[in-house]
Design a protein around this nucleic acid. Sequence first.
DNA 1: CGCGACATGTAAATAGTTACATGATTAT
DNA 2: ATAATCATGTAACTATTTACATGTCGCG
Lengths: 179, 179
Amino acid sequence: MSLRHALLGLLAEGPASGYDLTKQFEGSLMQWAWHTTHSHVYPELRRMTEDELVEVVATASRGRKTYGITDPGRQELRRWLLADPLTEEAVRSEAALRMFLLGNLEPAEAIKILQDYADRTTQRLETMQAQINQAPAQWRDNPFAVGRLVAERGLRTLPAVRDWALWCIEQLSQAQRPS
Amino acid sequence: MSLRHALLGLLAEGPASGYDLTKQFEGSLMQWAWHTTHSHVYPELRRMTEDELVEVVATASRGRKTYGITDPGRQELRRWLLADPLTEEAVRSEAALRMFLLGNLEPAEAIKILQDYADRTTQRLETMQAQINQAPAQWRDNPFAVGRLVAERGLRTLPAVRDWALWCIEQLSQAQRPS
DNA sequence: CGCGACATGTAAATAGTTACATGATTAT
DNA sequence: ATAATCATGTAACTATTTACATGTCGCG
């Protein structure tokens, strides 16, 4: 139930509406840590209100409801952040799965997919770098800022991923497919 | 519905039972590409049989049923592997999410979590390296072997992840937390 | 004969996606 | 006025997890 903690974490920075929170997911969170949609966010906020982890602190036009984190909410966030050492991430990546099964294609087909992947990885890296450069120094120079550390993670892992894809292409080009 | 394709991909290598397939997930697939449990595998195999993507090719003692991929199954696997360029992975990583929200803890607490994470990453890298070294050369030297390319991905991304965690620790140690 | 690994399943609950549905406000 | 964006929700479906449940075979 990590959506709940993601929302608590964002609300710990300050009050926000379901709409705002959804936008934050679409911004950076989605790319690096967690993905969701408004259809899941709204009901979850309602349940969290029932559980008294958040509360409606303001209502505005267009039915906008601003939520704030409560004390029990902060406690729960802290509890979760400090909980058991991250038991190893039950990874679920469609990209990795395809890579796993690439041997089922002809070398030329596999190479094309890897090349696309490498290209898109390079683009993603460039976009990230640009985003970081354009961000206010206040965020860029503050390791406590939400998402700052995770952004750096992208800068450091994407090149490794790209190099891996290029290495794969080399291997597949040289190899004769064994029967 | 990638579990279906994961199963097709594994069955493309040769017939196997639900039990065998679950074990394969617990082995390498789980760590890098996809995670599942037998409770999901068995019903999915039944549905895939109904859809004629796989068929029972043998039954043995203890109720063991060996499944084989059918021609439509191979077609579907191929279709999926060649489908639309991997639209960017809707990431969902509890580890990354915690990192995202680490700013909510005291620096010392955050540093401890990052240090644990770095340590576990190092261990994981060592384990992987050992696994690859111990694997038969037949697998190690064949880029078409199932999981061979993905294993290499681990070797190349884990050091970047570890270095990232260490970098974070440095940042947090130096920084004064802004109000 | 008893234990561990083999082997398969179902049921109940939770989580997540996609499609449907509605309406208000703001800028052009 | 009309389009874009703001803003919220529900419904139906699919996927996933956890717990329950059962029984077999081979080895010591």
